[in-house]
Design a protein around this nucleic acid. Sequence first.
DNA 1: CCGGGAAACTCGTATAGACGAGTGGACAGG
DNA 2: CCTGTCCACTCGTCTATACGAGTTTCCCGG
Lengths: 262, 262
Amino acid sequence: MAALPSGLLGALDPTSDRAVFRQIADQLREAIDKGRFREGDKLPSEAELVDHYSVSRMTVRNSLSILQGEGLVHSEHGKGVFVRPRPPVRRLASDRFARRHREQGKSAFTVEAEAAGSRPEVDRLEVKEERPSADISARLGGPRRVLARRRRYLLDHRPVEFAVSYIPLDLARDTPIAEPNPGPGGIYARLEELGHRLDHFEEEIRSRMPTPSEVKTLQLASGVPVIHLIRTAYDTEGRAVEVCDTVMAADAYVLSYQLPAT
Amino acid sequence: MAALPSGLLGALDPTSDRAVFRQIADQLREAIDKGRFREGDKLPSEAELVDHYSVSRMTVRNSLSILQGEGLVHSEHGKGVFVRPRPPVRRLASDRFARRHREQGKSAFTVEAEAAGSRPEVDRLEVKEERPSADISARLGGPRRVLARRRRYLLDHRPVEFAVSYIPLDLARDTPIAEPNPGPGGIYARLEELGHRLDHFEEEIRSRMPTPSEVKTLQLASGVPVIHLIRTAYDTEGRAVEVCDTVMAADAYVLSYQLPAT
DNA sequence: CCGGGAAACTCGTATAGACGAGTGGACAGG
DNA sequence: CCTGTCCACTCGTCTATACGAGTTTCCCGG
């Protein structure tokens, strides 16, 4: 095995209170921050780090797992540990639901992704009637049954978002909204055609670590949180006509909002 | 040592492909989800889990570290591993910078926290002139020097947010904005008094895992992401008069926005 | 020249043991 | 009764070893 290039990583300080595996993690983090390892670069192998620092392998693995938890690196079985590349991000502007954007045929996601030069896909489309959770029901004003529209969004073949729309069943039954493809402009256009002129949206944003099932659905690397967005659409009569519950890979998104100063 | 209450946790499936430490993590997670352990409850000790599953201690620790990464539990040296309680969250509404809220004396943070029955504090206040980073400078229209106002916010003695405001130095020099306490209504009120009538704000939201320094400043448990919010304030002439760079403990916040449907 | 297969390398999983350090309760002595 | 000590229990750190499984390289045989 080749020795590490000298100067890449320093030595341990045996007099320090800081645990050895933290010191190693610190040095690797610093090397990444300073660009000595770049996005996609392979870090020294566990065996090389064991040699360099004269510690046991579990100690080295412990260090690496810290960096993984910070989202700085990811490991690939049989290959090595790599500096995690920053994926292209999707910018969500606060005017993304403006009425003018509903005029043309394609969905907001598709139009915007193609404009940004990415390959958009929609996946795992599923439409069915359900009994809503207490929270969803309350947001919609208490319907007993709703239409649930689930789908997964991908950008350049990478899943980035999983979303569920809930519409009170009395609004959606026997309309294009209950079809897998609701037609040009999406369900918001159909709701307006049905006489529910949209007035405003309310969005609630949280962030947390993903559940195991979200890790699977969004193929998340460890150390990547999710953004949980709950949007409620209100018509001009103040009725909540849709709730959209969205979980996004946090490393793929920047949300952007405009607030009036009034 | 007392044995585990029977039925609390199941047995391992030796025929499963799933790694043992993952199976153990799955069972603990399920027990938490189903409420067999509640917020603040102590999980079985490592030694008890070792006995129950007949595995080595490192395997058990591996399982627990998974749950810690998911933000489900946290460990306390000498005490045990506990189900992480959900702290009270702070709701940020999109009208929080409305002009009417600037009329009274106290800061937005203080007023809102007291209304919610929490004890607000502001901490580590630091005001100084600086050379801005390239990003901040670009957002502000390219000033060479800025006034930076740093401060940490606490709720019930728990740090929840660290924020830095940047104001172009030519606006802020020799004004109350450069004072530690800028007076009633905060710096937005002062900016308006100086003739910069505020028109709108733009907020950019990201989420990621914290850096070690953020972990320290916000006393974050492992498995808690941060929300990174960058707000730019524009006056009626379209000039960017302030950029506020904020890092929040994600488990302490829900952000809320209203979007027009026009 | 090409294809196949072994070898060498990577990380993943798991065991067993040792010592350290923080916490809290029991117990003995004042 | 109070206090201080000790001990048992907790998690934290670290070593050494073993085997499995995925990937890459390289060499040998056809």
